[in-house]
Design a protein around this nucleic acid. Structure first.
Lengths: 169, 169
DNA sequence: TTCGTTGCAAAGCTTTTGCACGAAT
DNA sequence: ATTCGTGCAAAAGCTTTGCAACGAA
């Protein structure tokens, strides 16, 4: 069921830069809340902190299990993820069952996902050409895009091999 | 809430061709069922018939409301849509709320969807280049695609205009 | 006759909501 | 002191499942 792996923003970053990255994320949240007359609570801070430290397409349930020890309720996780999405710190995708998953997007280029239906692994792929085609289509049709979802479900290399090994289809 | 509009397979087709189209769909279903040792029931036929006659991204609920008069239960609609999807007569997409929607795919080229979050309208778009990019990526990564989902959510031309008319954002 | 299929209602999941208490400003 | 946020549990969607009756082969 896909453990949450610790992951660093881009590739490997020095501690100093990491700290500033977190600070920036924190500031973005604080500003967003202030601008909307909302409050910076310990729950919102803890959840953001957790996401920044271990970021890998976590489902709400996984995220909740990880932070409930810190006293966060399930409903708060749902509610807070929405707030974080509003300030573009995270964005959601949905897994094969349609359940929500989130990933941190601050400073990360846009990408789409290949989702393995056998092991649940999620691979990120960058498709600049695809984005260009999409944008052109939308302009042409007068369609104003707000968000999109582009996921390919199938068998990853490992699971494909494992399958061929036992029975040839 | 998107009425189901009558729609003809491609553009406009003569009755004779339409009849053969339906017959072919029926045959595909019958063969699929026979091959799997399953049975051709009146419910499965009625549902297929309905979908062929009025095909437009119907949600399960809409489809159910349309055929319940004919004595089909909601569970049967869910179950039958899965069977029809297995023989490639229909395929599903999900709307902004994540609920299932189905469309007939027999003889229809692959396409993706622009979904209006204001009025629910679904526009189909063909993106051959996007498909090519996807295929290449999958081959390169050894990822064996099974199905995919590519939907852009936003405001359609009409809803965008309607919005600008009242308040400028 | 056999066994897949159906409708119904109950159960399952994920997500949302109502409410009283707690906390940020 | 306000007013928003939180946790809990209940409620709400959507989909699946158990089961006795039914019907296709």
């Amino acid at each position: 069921m896909m453990a949450l792996r610790p992951e660093v923003p881009h590739s490997s970053v020095r501690t100093s830069r990491l700290a500033s990255y977190r600070k920036r994320a924190h500031d973005i949240l604080a500003e967003h809340l202030a601008a909307k007359g909302l409050r910076l609570t310990s729950q919102r801070e803890k959840l953001l902190e957790f996401l920044l430290s271990r970021n890998s397409h976590g489902s709400i349930e996984e995220i909740y299990q990880a932070v409930r020890g810190a006293g966060l309720g399930r409903a708060t996780v749902f509610r807070t993820m929405k707030v974080l999405e509003e300030c573009d710190l995270v964005s959601h995708l949905s897994d094969a069952n349609g359940a929500l998953r989130y990933e941190v997007t601050l400073d990360r280029p846009h990408h789409d996902h290949l989702v393995c239906i056998a092991c649940g692994r999620i691979v990120e792929v960058r498709w600049p050409e695809v984005e260009k085609v999409q944008r052109k289509s939308c302009v042409k049709l007068g369609f104003e895009p707000v968000w999109h979802r582009h996921e390919i479900f199938g068998r990853c290399a490992d699971c494909g091999k494992r399958r061929t090994a036992s029975s040839a289809t």
